[in-house]
């Protein structure tokens, strides 16, 4: 009986940890551990990068980061007569991927930027080709990112031609396929339509291309489920950008007040 109780206790602890993916990563001890692991992974990545023109990648990543910020600033300014006073809606922190897991349904990444560089928990991570994930644990110099290739992750996305939006999630089987759900059945979804981030979540900026439509089917006779081929190749992730939404605190405060 005692053995069975121990078995139930250990299994319950394990299942609790699995169900709260990322919960253990938030502990301070994990932060210290990540510092040590990050050091080795970084060295390992540097060796790999040596053969893939690391300096060129670095320069292009920096340029991408600057261009993204500029793009969103220009968009925010629009035709406003107060254009000069408009603040950057999003800031991007360039980071290098030092570890990237694939092949399971709970993938994650470690990036080489942490709290010392302005990264906080629950920030979106993107590239110009799509979303990568959300930061779940941050130490001084490294961050643990829950990958989009994770069955618990969803991104608010819209179909370019119609602006209809719904939750996009990984299909759990293929690294380059996702499913966009809750699209109204009457909508004419065309193959090769581009799917973008909707901007309705505070994690990701709007209009980042995510993928193209490859097919659709009716689910439960009510909604369309749209198959999307992702543009982001997770196998070749090198540099990413952590998104700092400057208006996020204000939005969250407003929501809390109203609720």
């Amino acid at each position: 009986m005692g053995r069975f109780l121990l078995f139930v206790l250990l299994e319950s602890a394990c299942i609790y940890m699995v169900c709260n993916r990322g919960i253990v990563q938030r502990y301070r001890l994990m932060g210290k551990l990540r510092e040590v692991q990050g050091f080795f992974w970084e060295k390992h990545t540097s060796i790999k990068e040596y053969s893939s023109l690391g300096a060129a990648n670095e320069r292009i990543a920096l340029e991408n980061t600057a261009l993204m910020e500029q793009l969103y600033l220009e968009r925010e300014r629009g035709d406003s007569p107060f254009a000069d006073t408009v603040q950057h809606p999003f800031r991007f922190i360039k980071a290098k991927v030092v570890r990237n897991t694939l092949g399971t349904t709970h993938n994650y990444l470690i990036i080489d930027k942490g709290s010392n560089h302005g990264v906080e928990e629950d920030m979106g991570v993107v590239t110009p080709s799509g979303v990568v994930g959300i930061t779940r644990g941050v130490s001084e110099n490294y961050s643990y990112v829950l990958s989009f290739l994770n069955t618990s992750q969803q991104v608010s996305a819209k179909i370019g031609s119609s602006n209809t939006f719904g939750p996009l999630s990984w299909d759990g089987e293929r690294e380059n396929m996702a499913v966009l759900n809750e699209i109204p059945q009457h909508l004419d979804v065309k193959q090769q339509d581009t799917v973008y981030t909707s901007g309705y979540s505070s994690f990701y900026p709007p209009d980042i291309p995510l993928g193209v439509v490859t097919g659709s089917r009716v689910v439960n006779g009510v909604h369309l489920s749209v198959d999307v081929r992702l543009l982001q190749d997770f196998r070749s992730l090198g540099h990413v950008m952590v998104v700092k939404n400057n208006g996020r605190e204000e939005i969250e405060k407003l929501v809390r007040e109203v609720q």
Partner: peptide
């Protein structure tokens, strides 16, 4: 913790 990323999965 060291290899797979989701504490509890291999342990369970």
């Amino acid at each position: 913790i060291f290899a797979d990323g989701v504490p509890g999965l291999n342990a369970a």
